[in-house]
Computed example of a mutant assay.
Amino acid sequence: MAQHVRDIMTGDPVTVEPQTSVAEVARIMRDEDLGVVLVTDGDQLRGLVTDRDLVVRSVSKGGDPERITVAGACSDELVTVSPDDDLVQAVQLMREHSVRRIPVVDHGHPVGIVSLGDLAMERDPESALGDISAARPNA
C-alpha cells in the first residue's frame, strides 16, 4: 500500500492563468476529461477551479463566459500537501476542510493533485467510489 502522496497523486496538473476565460477553462476540462484545473500566476499556485465552481461561481451569475475570467471562479484559500507527505495527513486535511481534491506542491510549484478518488482506489479499490474512480468517463 502506498504511504506517500507522490505514490498516488495525479502528476502534471493542467494549469491556467487567472485571466483565462471561464469558457476556455470549460473547453480544457471537456477536452482533457478533467474535473479540476489549477490556477497559477507564473509558476506559483494561486487557486483551484472545479467544473462545479465554473457553474456556481460564474455561469449561474450571468455574463459572457468568453469574457469572464477564471480568477473569480477559483478557490483561493487552498489546502496543499507536498509529494513527500504521508497519505494519512492528506486524508486528515480532506476531512478537516471538507475537500475532495488537494493540490500537491513542491516548493510552491504545483506538481500534482490528490483526490478522494485516488485515495479510494488506493485504500479500497472494491468500494463504489473506487469503482467509479477507475471507470472510463461516460462523456
Rank of each mutant, 00 (worst) to 15 (best):
V22P: 15
D31P: 01
I102K: 02
G35L: 03
V81S: 06
T50P: 09
V56K: 10
E24R: 15
D124P: 02
L93T: 06
T15I: 01
Q44W: 05
G47H: 10
V25A: 08
G72W: 05
T20L: 02
M1P: 11
H107F: 00
L119A: 01
I8K: 03
L78A: 04
R6D: 11
P125W: 04
M1E: 08
S21T: 09
D43V: 11
H107D: 15
L34W: 09
D7G: 14
E24S: 14
D33M: 00
H97C: 05
M29L: 12
V81P: 02
G108P: 11
P110G: 05
T10Q: 08
E96D: 14
Q19K: 14
E66T: 15
M1S: 14
L45S: 01
A71T: 02
E24M: 12
R46T: 04
I68R: 14
P137R: 12
T80V: 15
R6G: 04
T10E: 00
G108L: 07
I113G: 06
I132M: 12
D76L: 05
I132P: 03
Q19D: 15
R30S: 14
T15G: 01
D85E: 11
P110D: 07
R57F: 13
V111A: 05
G62H: 13
R52K: 14
D86H: 13
L78F: 06
R46M: 09
V14H: 12
G108K: 14
L45T: 03
V36F: 00
L129G: 10
P13K: 02
A135K: 04
Q44V: 04
D43E: 15
D118V: 00
P137Q: 08
D124M: 05
L93D: 06
V111L: 06
G35W: 00
V88D: 13
H107T: 09
A90T: 05
E126L: 14
A139M: 06
L116M: 01
L116S: 06
S98P: 09
L45Q: 03
S75N: 13
R95S: 10
D124Y: 05
V99C: 06
D31K: 12
A73D: 05
V36K: 06
M9G: 10
P13W: 02
S133I: 00
A134N: 13
D41K: 13
M94I: 09
M1R: 12
V111W: 04
I102M: 02
G130K: 03
R30G: 11
G130S: 08
H109M: 10
T50I: 09
A128C: 01
G117I: 02
G130Q: 01
M9D: 06
V59Q: 08
L48N: 08
D33H: 12
R57A: 15
A26G: 15
R30L: 14
T15Q: 03
L119D: 01
L93Q: 13
R27C: 02
T10R: 08
P13S: 04
M1T: 14
L78T: 00
P13F: 04
P13T: 07
A128W: 11
V39W: 08
V22A: 15
D12Y: 09
P137E: 09
S127E: 13
R67G: 08
G72A: 11
A90F: 00
D31A: 11
A135Q: 10
V49N: 03
E17T: 12
T69L: 04
P83W: 07
E96T: 12
